[in-house]
Design a protein around this nucleic acid. Structure first.
Lengths: 145, 145
DNA sequence: AACGATAATGCAACCAGGTTGCAAGTCCGT
DNA sequence: ACGGACTTGCAACCTGGTTGCATTATCGTT
């Protein structure tokens, strides 16, 4: 195992640090998100969880995800297919996303582009910027991998 | 009427320029979008259309919107509430959006911010950038207007 | 180690946005 | 005015997501 810390332990640790209830569902979901290379949809998670044992209820999944988002451990992005995808937040203040036009997958770009907010009409109060690059991911751009 | 051209005429003209069938639904939808100050959701449009006569079928509305998007006359943005909103495209190559955290409304910022794409992993092909400013709009930021 | 308040889970039903298939109607060139 | 092609309307359907409530698990306390 090259990874310094298995994702399961990392997930548990993150949850314990918040003094939150350490439930299987939370650990499992966070673990899956930490191990993923792209943001995962609700469906992805349900499938992934089901593959390694008994899947949990979809409502539970939604609630766990909402909770993780509220805790600031995870954030959600809604792609053009109107599906929310989730990915763990590694304390990057700002980070952009890449959405593949072909497969719809969504990747986090850890590069923090330091750009200024565009000019706003008077009275508008900016909070944060969201940047998404659209295009084709490596898998979809090249014929076969 | 201070406007140089009523939106109805402007809409008809845009459609005729494409040599497309000039149907009431298309004219009406485009007209409403041109008159709006913020991007309109499917529901907004259905309500607005219903207010001034008989509302059209939701399927028709979806199809008209899809068609307008395919024609490049309109573009759609999916907000955090997973609702698509539509606004006319006035030939701005790039333009940012503002999404209000409170009322969910979505505005187009015509300011073309000339920013470079963030660094991408190898093999990724960027197509275009999407920038959304999140915050509170003027109406929601001030108590009463 | 057992106990109980508190919080998480599972189930069923429900809701909204969006899509599909098909019949009926409309547009536009001839 | 006619006919083919395109558009509209209806009904049924699909998926992502939510709500209410009963059941079960978690964790601090005893």
């Amino acid at each position: 195992m090259p990874t310094a810390l298995p994702h399961h332990d990392q997930a548990s640790r993150l949850l314990q640090q918040r003094g939150a209830s350490l439930t299987p569902a939370r650990v499992r979901v966070l673990q899956l998100l930490l191990a993923a290379d792209a943001a995962m949809s609700h469906q992805d998670l349900q499938l992934a969880a089901g593959a390694g044992g008994r899947p949990f209820d979809k409502v539970t999944l939604y609630r766990v995800l909402d909770w993780l988002v509220a805790q600031g451990l995870v954030h959600s992005v809604t792609g053009h297919d109107r599906v929310r995808r989730f990915s763990p937040l590694h304390a990057h203040a700002t980070h952009a996303h890449f959405e593949c036009r072909d497969c719809g997958r969504l990747f986090c770009l850890d590069d923090a582009a330091p750009l200024a907010s565009p000019a706003l009409p008077p009275g508008f109060e900016p909070d944060h910027l969201e940047i998404t690059v659209h295009g084709r991911c490596a898998d979809c751009a090249s014929p076969a991998a």
